[in-house]
């Protein structure tokens, strides 16, 4: 990459990578949330299983899955690198630091929220991704598709798992509340005519995505969908 110099190793370059992967993950969540929301059709998961089958078998989606994993890993490792660097930039801490006077707690806690999400992700991938891609889904539905819907329904009978998922969605909501608008600012997309739209779309996006996701374990656990 001669000529690009320190484009990606400089502080701003590293932030570009965080912002770009963040926006990529924001787009992924729309797809993930949209397809999963098919469970609310309450048709014993027939439509949802068609969607899941497509996602598991279409080669473009499978290739996208690899890119998604890479994007996620880059987002995580870059965050770790930046955090270590940022800690080094202030070796002696303040005895008194009134952070709440000038910024939102979740904007200062992206590392903590992200770590909670990473722990959740390990649980979540083990719950569903490993099952659907590797160990195999035990039953089939009326259409003959692998019944991922039944796997979800069974897993969410466990109240501990439901609690873990709900906590994770709270973390996700706050992570997105800062991350969405922050990515735009990092990419330099700050414009007085669009700032208001970016901000409100970010807030609505964060809340809607988190609530729809959180509704899934709750709906299964309390038998609102069968």
């Amino acid at each position: 990459m001669s000529g690009f110099g320190n484009a990606f190793s400089s502080s701003i370059g590293k932030k570009f990578i965080m912002g770009a992967t963040g926006i990529f993950l924001v787009l992924f969540l729309i797809v993930h949330c949209g397809i999963n929301a098919l469970i609310f059709l309450d048709d014993q998961g027939l439509t949802f299983n068609i969607g899941a089958h497509f996602m598991a078998t279409n080669w473009i989606i499978r290739a996208g899955e690899v890119i998604l994993m890479l994007g996620l890993l880059v987002h995580i490792f870059q965050a770790l690198r930046l955090t270590l660097q940022n800690n080094k930039a202030r070796p002696v801490k303040y005895a008194v630091n009134d952070g709440k006077a000038n910024s939102k707690w979740y904007s200062r806690s992206m590392g903590l929220l992200g770590t909670l999400l990473l722990i959740f992700l390990v649980v979540h991938l083990k719950d569903f991704w490993v099952v659907s891609r590797f160990t195999g889904i035990p039953s089939v539905d009326a259409n003959g598709h692998e019944d991922l819907y039944a796997v979800m329904r069974d897993k969410f009978q466990d109240p501990v798992r439901v609690a873990v998922y709900l906590l994770a969605m709270v973390s996700l909501c706050y992570h997105l509340l800062h991350g969405f608008a922050s990515a735009f600012q990092t990419m330099g997309w700050n414009h007085s005519k669009y700032n208001g739209i970016i901000k409100s779309v970010g807030v609505w996006y964060s809340i809607i995505i988190s609530i729809v996701f959180a509704a899934m374990p709750l709906a299964f656990h309390f038998g609102l969908i069968k």
Partner: peptide, 9 residues
């Protein structure tokens, strides 16, 4: 110096 995380502080 550290890296900006857009807290706005």
């Amino acid at each position: 110096f550290g890296n900006c995380t857009n807290t706005g502080a």
